[in-house]
Design a protein around this nucleic acid. Structure first.
Lengths: 391, 391
DNA sequence: TTGTAGGCGTTATCAA
DNA sequence: TTGATAACGCCTACAA
């Protein structure tokens, strides 16, 4: 009993490969071969098929193809929140690489909630994506899911955060180092009471940045005062709360572990009528193009977001195409970008101005609240012990 | 000849519905009914099936389901660039609504290139998405694709930009009105030579904002000087170029049609050592939380980004579930947020200070370069002829 | 209530 | 080179 494909009510649905075959008076194999450019079709038939395809406005059904080939050419990416300005560039990096390789990207927002995350992971597995990129929510993975991910053998690459529960590939930024540099810089220019607005400690990079902070203090002979530490959740409001708590304790400076919390922190400072860098120095994590043109211009640790996404996707695609070998952890280099929120020039004024010939040439007062752009940048190039940019 | 489903080499591949059926000693129908909660299964069998599902770690293959049901429960969204800070919130709005309705979201970046966009649209059609959200690239749609979109009858909602070529639903912000308000505000506070950094005129909201600018000038008895207009492409670099071109012509103020271009523009101002609002007033389009805490605090036209995405998705889902009726155009309301970049207080200083009792109470000099937060906000509430927020 | 078998649109195997 | 036909995994009319 051969299936009676051809007898479809014409016009109502999209043409399929059988329709094309019939119209071109060939078999479905031939059509399939033409579609997949399998060159083992005579030129004559090839042309006939192509004509039929055009006439019927035929478009291969990738769903059916995926089912047959057991390959969806789709990857899933689960991030906490695409609206957190950190992630768009990461996702863009992913999407660029994926699309070049013929893959589509399914986007999921977990809001850092384990439940949502697991829901999405299951969904992605059900959709039979070829691979998954994951920025894990805090907390531990359900053993359930953990087992499932292992059994199903879908390539999985962790992005930005690692997990004890998942022994897979990961692509990270070196957050320990970044935080260390940030705090070391603050210490170097004379700050003593350095506060921390930390990310959630349930997340690997939260603890990494926290550790960098602590060890940088230690390395600079400063003691770690618990009263100067506040744990946030990487969202604006937690930075705001941290500011309200910390600022009254009069730290010399503060290291804030991500951009959104810095925004909240600055908001708190505004409300309390405290100014940066006059009243407190600040180094923020994660840089954005617009930070160069608003004041106070933030001193930041730049994280290579696009590259992070791109590398993650590249690794994932390699795994998808069968690359074997132990799981890998790549760490990308962060970069200290010195501007004025750290209070650098504030200190310089009292210390040593002759280092900057450029300064006197300009014949201007070195006013922190104005735009000492060139001065700061010049200086950046001479900074030792840190990776700096010419911003 | 019944298909011999059951005889699969066990262990190597995921279990399917036949495996479950066999293990539970029932038919596939029963399994399917259980999976889809079709309640017409006796409790006993139901339990048997559920046990089998658990034992086999069975997970329905949504690919196969989609193929059978002709429904993928997936929508595609094509935006110019998710790394443009405008879009993440839009996408987030979409994703939230979609996921609540059981839909997944395929993300595509067109870079405003017709070619990429069309590539993605075709891909989405081939993937048989149930609907498409599209922020169109400049220029006209290929007649080819145009016809195809019509024939294939996939619900399509335009987001943020309309098109003459596509007679479908659209959800927009009222950009004409927003631009008008922005420029009218500048005129109202005394600026005469008002420049424009426009978006691409090949895009509907580019021309809408441009028109708003022109008519606001007219309404305020100002003439439109072509030398004070620069067309950008919504990206940072074009704003930078516009700044280098426009600033030497000494406009009183400038209206910049989106945030990224404002960033570029401010960068140019920095390089030219010109200050905002002292040397030029500025109103930017599109607001962000962090604009409240860096100086100059930008006066902006806020666009409801999240809502834009959410409404688009809602409309799309309705169409997907069969809603009939003529195509719709929804316009969301923009909102003027007065801060200091427009030069408001600068003018106030010379005009009328008594309006602000709060000011004198504070016993402070009204210094534009510092943080006249409360003053500005107070004032905002009294502003007529514009939708304002208490920021 | 449960089972059977055809259909969804491809790919892939095996003959011819 | 081509053709016929069995997977792929699920849904669902129709039968029992």
């Amino acid at each position: 009993m051969t299936p009676q494909r051809g007898r479809r009510r014409r016009g109502t649905k999209a043409a399929n490969i059988y329709d094309v075959a019939k119209k071109a008076r060939v078999s479905v194999f031939t059509v399939s071969a033409v579609i997949n450019k399998s060159d083992q079709v005579s030129a004559a038939l090839q042309r006939r098929v192509e004509v039929a395809i055009r006439q019927l406005n035929y478009r291969p059904n990738l769903l059916a193809r995926s089912l047959a080939k057991q390959r969806t050419h789709t990857i899933g990416i689960v991030v906490p929140d695409i609206a957190n300005p950190f992630f768009p560039l990461v996702v863009r990096g992913v999407e660029d690489i994926a699309q070049k390789a013929g893959y589509s990207t399914l986007l999921c927002n977990s809001d850092n909630q384990r439940e949502k995350e697991e829901h999405y992971l299951e969904l992605l597995l059900s959709k039979r994506v070829d691979g998954i990129l994951l920025t894990m929510a805090p907390g531990r993975l359900t053993p359930w899911l953990q087992r499932m991910l292992a059994e199903v053998k879908v390539p999985l690459v962790l992005v930005m955060r690692t997990s004890k529960d998942l022994k897979t590939d990961a692509v990270l930024t070196d957050d320990y180092k970044g935080a260390f540099e940030a705090v070391a810089h603050l210490a170097r220019i004379g700050h003593r009471r350095i506060a921390l607005v930390s990310g959630p400690l349930g997340v690997s990079n939260g603890t990494a940045r926290w550790k960098g902070y602590r060890e940088a203090l230690e390395a600079n002979g400063l003691t770690c005062d618990p009263d100067l530490i506040a744990e946030g959740d990487y969202r604006t409001e937690s930075g705001h709360r941290a500011g309200l708590t910390l600022l009254p304790r009069r730290p010399d400076a503060v290291f804030v572990a991500n951009y959104l919390m810095t925004v909240g922190f600055m908001q708190a400072a505004n409300e309390m009528e405290m100014r940066c860098p006059e009243d407190f120095g600040l180094v923020s994590f994660d840089d954005y193009p617009w930070l160069r043109c608003f004041r106070p211009r933030l001193t930041t640790i730049e994280l290579p977001k696009y590259e992070l996404g791109a590398k993650s996707a590249q690794l994932l695609l390699k795994r998808i195409s069968g690359m074997q070998g132990r799981s890998t952890v790549q760490k990308l280099e962060p970069q200290l970008r010195v501007r004025e929120s750290c209070g650098f020039t504030l200190h310089l004024r009292n210390v040593d101005r002759k280092v900057f010939p450029h300064d006197s040439q300009k014949g201007k007062e070195l006013d922190v609240a104005s735009r000492p752009t060139l001065i700061r940048e010049k200086l950046a190039d001479d900074q030792p012990a840190a990776t700096l940019t010419r911003d």
